[in-house]
């Protein structure tokens, strides 16, 4: 990397901090008492977090978000990898059509399935359950497409050698393709997790029971129960907001490069 002109460096950092200032300030605000915040004084308290976690159930919402996003990620990546392997390695009747249909889901606006999916899950009695939150999110056309492109880049000779030794397709997938696709699988798992973590409209319609709220629903409700301008308990709301963004934020700092690579590779294809 080239050295940077110090003036440009400092200016750039200021720009970056200014850009993120609303979020940074909201985190700072979450450690203020409401009285101090409205009076413009500076304090330090964990009271907002205690109230958010205890009185306002955010521990439960955090657990729900972890369960739902975790399961969607594990199931989603499994389903996508299985399909990607077949699309990359087998020629079969209807294969191109099915792959086309998978890629086309990227262009299909998700709102069209909102009411039908609600009715489907109501019919089988899965509204207000974890399964109802998870099932519609499992198929991920982008992950399947991305992994298929990646697997095509792995030399086919490796598979063929294994087949000669009598390996089954599942063994080839598990012993050869998956280990060699680890970076791509990790990127996609991350992408699925973050997308599901931040999902709002589906949990909003699929869940009415408070003990099944995800963080997103819990936060939106907490903000909205404050009756109007001026009466909002901003420090409490910001503590809840910080709990909502923190897991992704912390993860982001470790894996930013993976994530960016995943996204840009997908766009280039």
């Amino acid at each position: 990397m080239k050295p940077e002109n110090p003036v440009v460096a400092v200016l750039s950092l200021v720009v970056g901090l200014l850009f993120l200032s609303p979020v940074l300030y909201s985190i700072w605000m979450s450690f203020q008492t409401a009285d101090a915040f409205y009076a413009g004084r500076v304090t330090f308290t964990l009271d907002n977090y205690e109230r958010a976690v205890g009185q306002f159930n955010f521990a439960r919402y955090l657990l729900n978000s972890l369960i739902v996003s975790g399961l969607v990620t594990v199931l989603g990546i499994t389903v996508a990898t299985l399909a990607a392997f077949a699309f990359a390695r087998f020629t079969f009747r209807g294969g191109d059509l099915l792959f086309g249909a998978t890629v086309a889901t990227l262009m299909i606006p998700s709102h069209i399935s909102l009411i039908p999916n609600y009715l489907t899950l109501a019919k089988v009695g899965l509204l207000d359950t974890y399964a109802g939150l998870i099932l519609p999110a499992i198929s991920n056309g982008f992950a399947a497409f991305f992994l298929r492109q990646y697997i095509r880049g792995i030399p086919k000779a490796l598979d063929e050698a294994a087949y000669m030794d009598g390996a089954s397709p599942l063994t080839v997938l598990w012993r050869i393709i998956v280990p060699l696709s680890k970076p791509a699988i990790a990127s996609m798992a991350l992408y699925i997790f973050i997308t599901e973590w931040n999902n709002y409209i589906w949990p909003l319609v699929a869940v009415g029971r408070q003990d099944l709220y995800t963080l997103q629903i819990g936060l939106a409700r907490l903000y909205k129960i404050n009756p109007g301008e001026g009466l909002v308990d901003w420090p409490l709301v910001m503590a809840a907001s910080t709990i909502t963004i923190l897991p992704v934020l912390a993860g982001f700092l470790f894996v930013e490069r993976h994530l960016v690579r995943g996204i840009t590779m997908g766009a280039g294809k």
């Binding site: 990397m1 080239k2 460096a9 750039s12 979020v23 910001m238």
Partner: peptide, 26 residues
């Protein structure tokens, strides 16, 4: 490809993986 450029890219990218509800509330 400078360190500052990397950092700034990270800062600008951050909101796109952040919860939209949190952003809306903030």
């Amino acid at each position: 490809e400078t360190l500052v450029s990397r950092l700034l890219r990270g800062a600008l990218f951050l909101p796109s993986v952040t919860s939209t509800v949190s952003i809306a509330v903030v």
